[in-house]
Amino acid sequence: MTNLSLTKHQIQSVKNFKDLITTPFVEEVNAMCWERNLIGNFSEIIEKVTLNGNIAELHPEELRALQLSEQGQLAREILLNDLQILKVHGASPILNIIKNYERDDASPFFPTDVYSFHVDRSPIPTDTFLCTYVGESSEILPNSQAIQKVLVPEIRVKLKKLYGGKEGEGFESFLSEFFFDLHYQAKLNAKPIPLGVGNLWKLAIDHPESKVLPCLHRAPKEKTGQSRLLLIC
């Protein structure tokens, strides 16, 4: 379980899915958690799926076709239900088995992969939902414990060189076009918060009508030989 008491100003706990989707973000709260102790063998589902590559999307029809033990069936029903309730809500959930994500090695001083603390952005009002069922969980970071990377002086100097022009309106558009402005650097002594296994989260994102700061989050470093089972939308 996640220790929400340490971050009560940023995280709000709710008791069910209805509260998760209907409770608005206000003031400092930009992460909402429906804490759950799930039953069933979710690892069995990973074992039954052949992973061709680093990431595989698991569709409902594929889930239903798996031959599972009683505990595996319990896990499957939870996954199917989570997918369904989010779809009814209007979201587009994806269930992934993840060995590891692709890393951004093109810009060693400024990687823009999901292992970097970042925020999500949308032109329309929406939220990010995610749940880790197996493996290391995603992490969030209080906004006060990070600085936007494009504002770090030494990084900004390198970005200007990469842009090849003077700082101005064009430079800011460049930062946005290549998603540099979405990434953050943790401050000294920052304390990332693991989201835990089984909990369904709603995270605030950057959109025109948002009244709160977007939630900083990142993918965890996977353990060798252990795949993750993650729902995200």
Rank of each mutant, 00 (worst) to 15 (best):
T50Y: 05
M32S: 11
E44Y: 05
A65S: 11
I21V: 15
E27K: 14
T22V: 04
P24L: 14
L83R: 04
L80G: 00
L68W: 06
K18L: 14
S43T: 04
V14G: 02
K18V: 13
I11H: 09
Q73V: 13
I78T: 13
D82M: 05
K15D: 14
N16A: 06
G90E: 02
I85F: 08
I78D: 07
Q67K: 05
N81T: 04
H89K: 14
G40I: 01
M32H: 02
V88Y: 12
L79W: 11
I55G: 00
I39N: 14
A75D: 01
I55P: 02
Q84L: 12
L63K: 08
T23S: 09
T22H: 06
I39E: 15
W34G: 00
P60R: 05
V26H: 14
L79G: 06
L38K: 00
K48N: 13
T23C: 10
T22S: 12
M32C: 14
L68Y: 03
V26R: 15
V49R: 04
N52T: 12
R36Y: 05
N41Y: 05
Q73W: 12
Q10I: 10
E27F: 10
E61W: 09
N41G: 12
P24F: 14
Q71C: 07
T22W: 04
D19H: 09
V49S: 08
